[in-house]
Design a protein around this nucleic acid. Structure first.
Lengths: 188, 188
DNA sequence: ACCTGAACACCGTTCAAGT
DNA sequence: ACCTGAACACCGTTCAAGT
């Protein structure tokens, strides 16, 4: 893979400062935060930002991969603590909270479950799909989840639920409600 | 209300040209289409665009109100043709198709069902809510829809379903599936 | 009353010059 | 090998001058 030679010390320092500042900026100003501003706040020239991250999407991903990996990791922990059906719902809830609260992450999580998503987001997309598969398949074996839905579909639907909750009010107060409407259905 | 005096002939002409061009531009380039470009294509100075539409959201709304009103109107037509439960689902399907296919409309329909939405989108938001209320309440009386969901919640959930379908593939192939997963629920 | 378009500020992106 | 920052292009927004 890439990066056989280690980075020069100053390059590594800049890279990490950029990531840290970018995560803050995206969280504060949303996915369209000014790249120039991020470079300035990190104390580097704008060219340096482009050297490390060729476009906004690349920076966005790099800034949040660890967060997304953390969510994926949570799947395993929750699976040990709860029965399959509940575990799935609980994990989806945490996923939705992350989607709404960390403003920059919404786009990223969205593109992670898109059909023709870029190679850049494939990495964390794969982690999410694996995490989802584990919980989904367990719930299906248990018989608390329909057998005809695929893991990636559950991720997409959860993303939709996050959006719906966001429309209801800024923070995630409605996530549990809308998530349970999805699992139980709109029929009486 | 506004607009007591009729517009001057040239103003009216410009206004309508701007709307027509804007609808095309938003459909083609999405909600972030260049306003300057819209003004140029409409053959007016950029100041004229701002005179008629103080910001992007205002233009976006003006360009698509009639489309949204048309969707709202469809509710009544569908209600006459189908039993309540089916009518609701059918209408939500048409709504989702519009949300996805007409690129500029997504943001607008979203903000129409947001809690603190601007006064600008209140008008078409109201039409949508009325249309939804009619179908939702009929389905609830019929007993095919849970009694504890409100019309605006159904609109928000439908918006979420549209997003989920969009993630699945560009066009609306998955809308019916995800809509039925919502109505029937994820449990077996 | 309305229109025009120059002017300004801001941002993304590139690249020659520097270490 | 990497960094800097000036330079360019583009866009949103304002406003003085014009009809």
């Amino acid at each position: 893979m890439a990066q056989v030679r280690p980075m020069r010390a100053d390059a590594r320092r800049n890279y990490e400062r950029l990531l840290k500042v970018a995560a803050e900026a995206f969280a504060e100003h949303g996915e369209n935060a000014s790249l120039d501003d991020i470079a300035k706040r990190a104390g580097v020239g704008s060219g340096t930002l482009y050297r490390h991250f060729p476009n906004r999407q690349a920076l966005l991903e790099a800034a949040y991969v660890d967060r997304i990996e953390a969510i994926a990791t949570r799947a395993g922990e929750i699976a040990k603590a709860l029965p399959p059906g509940e575990a799935l719902v609980e994990w989806l809830h945490e996923l939705c909270v992350g989607t709404i609260q960390v403003r920059g992450m919404k786009v990223l999580l969205g593109s992670a479950v898109t059909d023709g998503s870029s190679a850049a987001v494939t990495a964390c997309g794969t982690s999410m799909k694996e995490a989802a598969s584990r919980l989904v398949e367990a719930a299906q074996r248990e018989g608390t989840l329909r057998a005809d839905v695929e893991p990636i579909e559950v991720l997409r639907l959860a993303h939709g639920i996050a959006i719906a909750s966001e429309l209801a009010n800024g923070q995630g107060a409605y996530i549990r409600r809308y998530l349970s409407l999805l699992t139980e259905g709109l029929r009486p």
